[in-house]
Computed example of a mutant assay.
Amino acid sequence: MHLRSWLLVAITVGVGFGQISCDNRKQGEASKEVASEKMPKITFAEKGIYDFGTLIEGDTVDHVFTFTNTGEFPLIINNITASCGCTTPEWPRQPVAPGEKSSVRVRFNSRGKMGQQNKTITIFANTEPAMTDLQFKAMVNPKPDSAKKS
């Protein structure tokens, strides 16, 4: 009988701890959702793919992508990579406060490029998701040949 009493106590304690840990798990998930909603958010003014239009091979063009931090914590851009060495991004190195606007400047050098160009710039920041893509396109026509004379 003494063994049964200890067994009953052990089962009761085990079920109690199980309930508490289950409750902690639910609280953790709820906290994660609340924190995720408050994370920095990078919201760009423009949607879709920016079109530089038609360029002549060798032209260099740039565009400023304006964004707002629509989250509740400072936005920090850690890095930006481009899909090609012909594209150079510039971004704010300081944190962007909640509600503040800033921008990413993208410069595209069409030297050595021909035809339709589709490029992607990937922003790595303390946002959820951690990566955000910007895209642009351009049609690059060949330079007129200055050696030909009519």
Rank of each mutant, 00 (worst) to 15 (best):
V13L: 14
I42K: 00
V64D: 11
C86Q: 00
R93N: 11
H63A: 06
E29M: 15
E29S: 07
G58I: 06
G85I: 05
S31W: 12
T122M: 13
E57I: 01
V34S: 13
A138F: 02
T122D: 14
R25E: 13
D23G: 05
H2P: 01
F73D: 00
A10I: 06
V15N: 02
V15M: 08
N79A: 11
A125P: 00
T132I: 01
T87D: 13
E72Y: 13
Q27M: 02
F65P: 04
R25M: 14
S36L: 03
K143P: 01
L75C: 05
S102K: 00
K38T: 05
P129V: 11
T70F: 09
V13H: 04
T132S: 13
T122S: 15
I49W: 05
L7I: 09
I77N: 13
Q135P: 06
V34G: 12
V106W: 02
K32P: 00
K101Y: 12
G48K: 10
K143H: 01
K119C: 15
I42E: 02
N69W: 11
K26V: 02
M114A: 15
M131G: 01
V140D: 00
H63I: 04
S5G: 06
Q19C: 07
H63E: 02
T127C: 09
G53A: 14
V104L: 13
K47T: 08
L134G: 01
T60P: 00
G99R: 07
G48V: 13
K38H: 03
A45L: 08
A45C: 06
R111W: 09
T68S: 08
F108D: 00
H2V: 15
F67P: 02
A10W: 07
A82F: 13
P144K: 01
F44Y: 12
